[in-house]
Design a protein around this nucleic acid. Sequence first.
DNA 1: TTGAAAGCGCTAACAC
DNA 2: GTGTTAGCGCTTTCAA
Lengths: 344, 344
Amino acid sequence: MTNIQDVAKAAGVSTASVTRYLAGQTIRRADAVKQAIDELGYRPSHVARSLKTGRHDSIGVIVPDISNPFFAALVKGVEREMRPHGMQVILGNSDEDAGREEALVRELSQRTDGIIMAPLTENDEIPLALMKTGIALVFVDRDISSGPDVDRVLVDNASGVRQAVDHLVGLGHTRIAAISGPLDSTPGRMRHEALLSSFEHHGIAADDSLLRIGDFREASGRAAIQEIWAAPQRPTAVFVANNLMTTGALTALMEMGVRVPSDLSVVGFDDLPLAALLDPPLTVIARPDVDQGAAAARLLVERLGEPGQPSPAPHPTQSLVLPVELVVRGSTIAAPALPEGSPA
Amino acid sequence: MTNIQDVAKAAGVSTASVTRYLAGQTIRRADAVKQAIDELGYRPSHVARSLKTGRHDSIGVIVPDISNPFFAALVKGVEREMRPHGMQVILGNSDEDAGREEALVRELSQRTDGIIMAPLTENDEIPLALMKTGIALVFVDRDISSGPDVDRVLVDNASGVRQAVDHLVGLGHTRIAAISGPLDSTPGRMRHEALLSSFEHHGIAADDSLLRIGDFREASGRAAIQEIWAAPQRPTAVFVANNLMTTGALTALMEMGVRVPSDLSVVGFDDLPLAALLDPPLTVIARPDVDQGAAAARLLVERLGEPGQPSPAPHPTQSLVLPVELVVRGSTIAAPALPEGSPA
DNA sequence: TTGAAAGCGCTAACAC
DNA sequence: GTGTTAGCGCTTTCAA
């Protein structure tokens, strides 16, 4: 590879002048340098530059599952926001694996100026270690319980669950099942807690045989709904705490011959790309995905500044909570008439 | 940050010995070095190491659209295959934008030892430039017309289209519409060519009013099906060349009140995560996604070798063509009885 | 086995 | 505005 010395020699200047030219400063022999660069096909070594400056002009995004459309959209939001700032976005997919998350953090913290991540669990200690290295950090979608001093973007999980439960109760449902996410993750815990408090608010008794905890993956949604449907008293509606588990639950229901919504109303957290095309179209709590990523990217840019510019002054961390929205489609209908002898 | 000198000093050895320890060689004062590393929390600088060795122990994957489930799955396959080899996977999403693809290639070629990519078009010159830098390269899913000397993994597009057309013809369809992909991309061109030759093989006249070219994105599927449905003689079946356009077409059909499959049979290329849950369940050509990524990763590993090991001897490039498979679900049924006066 | 020292390619004082 | 030069942190000859 041709290096800066070759260019300097060819242009008859010092390497310092080439650097200055590259940095956009005005130098006398700019044309000669430009020509030398073009002719030699010179590309500055990113590695050498990083070693010298300690900057990388890139950021990392670490998500638990890139094949979850929510995270794919989130990443898109980050990229769109970062593009005009001249920062490369490097993506890491931890595949819901703590070991892999750690490897990614270790790796990306050496190649980037800042990291946007959705920690696997609230007890995740990996981000703590990261913060000590001084790299800029933004949590998105998920939080950790200790170490509050980080920028973060979350959605209003509690409000979403409340809207879902209100909607079902408004349709006359009282036997409501739920498939929650892992209680050691922020969205899992917040949604589950909001569910219980919504039940309480509406005077609905929490029936353990109708409450299941999954792991946010498709298979756990399948298993959970099968158990729920085997309960002594079946529910008339079910709330599922994320998109993948909803998919699993719907598949299992179809296989079991349970008709949605006549046998069972279904409302899911997270919109799905094809939710409107499903049979029936799915009622969901939709939350911002692209926007959530973009918001996280903006927080990071505020902290890092633009490439080539001096870093902005440190400022207090920010917590953003984005609103969510109930989208009523066809998978929720009024509860069937109460069987004889039921309480009002 | 603590560096190798600090460790060497603390352990009372030279930096060379620390390097040797890190490389797994046996040195006399190994314990002291280990202790110094632990106490100081030393992490070798990846940047400095890369500058010196020219290796990165990581690979890049560049896809046109990470929110396309096909590419998300492909990336997953790459990561799963790479993990045991100790190589980090860095992901780039070009968002179907040539400028962004170029930026990613420029960036990742400086941070990785090899790149797996799906070039945007067959005329894409970016990979050619990349090959000149000597970095290892594997094409996946898409190819470029010039510069054949690259490892590649494709799927049997022609066979897939043939299976789809055979299936429709077998159901009695003769007025078959098609929404093809961009003719300057490998899958777009191959599928379109296979379509025309399948038509010819079955004696079906290609009707321009039923043939549309999209861009593999959802909106173009919507627009195309609307145009097709406005044709003087409507089709009884449509073939759509990828998943996103299929989604768009189905949405538009629903909005137009066209019933699938009674009004129109639909077969799509690419399976969808929710294809079985759609109304009706979608008949598709399913192709390997995770496996395609894993295969590409394997080719790259064969070329690069393991981190820390000497590189394997160069060997001829390989081209893999993976089989695809027709999955018949509910969106294709027998063609309606011919209107009076039609030819047999 | 070990240490000294050169140098990967670049940037940023510093002196002119 | 320009050139000289030290040095970012590491690996790798080379001699011992």
